[in-house]
């Protein structure tokens, strides 16, 4: 009898602890900082610069959310995570959101209990090999030694691809991108496999990038996007619409240069007005200020600006827009309406 009462009390305590973790928005506001999980260093996506400031394509999403929520794009605490630690960090509440080239899959959604709020990069898994190896297609890789980052979807895709094509391979599991690079360059593995964007990013840091080829086969769909944990839909909405604001801003021609002018007074386009808070109360619905989208966009510019600055064709990484162009340009980027 007494035991039941004790456990009853403990249950209540446990429930309260669970409930306290739910309101991420309040936590972030109270803390004055957004805890954002990023990679341990992948050039162009999330990498600290010479002064220790994080920059990159994924980092820009964190900064946009921090801008929308706190009005300050620099109020972000970046938490480097490996492929292994990222989900634990998010599930345990150590980070508020994860923006780390993470592939959206059903099991991560339903079984790991995460909400992917959208896709910020449509990617696919590819292979990189040294030119001197003379390989021109992934189909010729029978018997090859393959360096692979452990704890990612890539090792599942790899197993499937080689099984489907009835080829054998020797996996060399590696914890981080930097170690993989070292082993690949030393010739401890014949090919390195990861998302094609990651390959381009890694190749860009090589002494002689032209000595390595990225094979034409893309063996999987890898929609990469930011994610939050289940159980706080309001917070999920905020991250989702911060990302959508960046995408829509490019579509509407709003840039970091003209966003302040456009937000100063209501313009001709009702949707732009609603997004920038000069009309309607979309910000209030999200629990944010009216100028949330202005702050998100001025953090680093619209999607196109972020892309060009960090991973676009003018950067050493040199990725073409491809699938990641606006839907009006034949790509897949399509933001739902701001209404």
């Amino acid at each position: 009898m007494k035991k039941t009462a004790i456990f009853g009390a403990l249950t209540v305590a446990g429930l309260m602890a669970g409930a306290a973790g739910a309101a991420t928005l309040d936590d972030v506001k109270a803390r004055g900082k957004l805890n954002c999980g990023v990679s341990t260093g992948l050039a162009g996506f999330s990498n600290p610069d010479a002064n220790g400031n994080w920059e990159g394509f994924d980092v820009a999403v964190c900064r946009a959310v921090a801008g929308a929520v706190l009005g300050d794009a620099n109020a972000v605490e970046f938490v480097p995570t490996t492929g292994k630690t990222r989900f634990t960090a998010l599930a345990s509440g150590e980070i508020d959101m994860l923006a780390r080239n993470t592939t959206w899959t059903l099991s991560r959604d339903a079984d790991l209990k995460f909400t992917f709020v959208g896709v910020n990069y449509y990617d696919g898994q590819g292979f990189m090999a040294p030119k001197e190896l003379g390989v021109s297609s992934a189909k010729e890789l029978d018997g090859a030694t393959v360096c692979i980052q452990t704890g990612t979807t890539t090792e599942l895709n790899l197993a499937d691809y080689f099984r489907k094509n009835n080829m054998s391979y020797e996996p060399v599991p590696i914890e981080t991108n930097a170690e993989a690079q070292q082993q690949y360059l030393a010739g401890a593995c014949d090919v390195y496999t990861t998302d094609a964007s990651g390959l381009a990013s890694t190749r860009a840091t090589f002494e002689d990038p032209s000595a390595h080829v990225i094979l034409p086969e893309i063996i999987s769909k890898e929609p990469l996007g930011p994610l939050v944990r289940h159980g706080d839909d309001e917070w999920g909405d905020i991250v989702r619409w911060s990302l959508n604001a960046l995408i829509a801003a490019e579509e509407f021609g709003i840039t970091s240069a003209n966003v302040a002018d456009m937000a100063a007074a209501a313009g001709d386009s009702p949707e732009i007005n609603r997004m920038l808070g000069t009309e309607g109360n979309l910000g209030e619905m999200l629990g944010l200020d009216a100028n949330w989208a202005v702050n998100a966009i001025s953090a680093g510019g619209n999607y196109g600006e972020v892309f060009e600055k960090n991973i676009g064709e003018s950067t050493p990484i040199g990725l073409a827009r491809g699938l990641n162009a606006q839907w009006t340009e034949g790509g897949l980027l399509y933001s739902p309406p701001f209404r």
Binding site: F7, L10, A13, G14, A17, L156, A159, D160
Partner: peptide, 26 residues
């Protein structure tokens, strides 16, 4: 109790059923 309760709140009841599913990696 607190751990178990929090896991249930997260919708992750402890279970070892996954051990019988295909691993999928080499």
């Amino acid at each position: 109790n607190n751990t178990a309760q929090n896991l249930v709140d997260l919708g992750k009841e402890p279970s070892f059923g996954f051990m019988n599913e295909p691993a999928g990696y080499d």
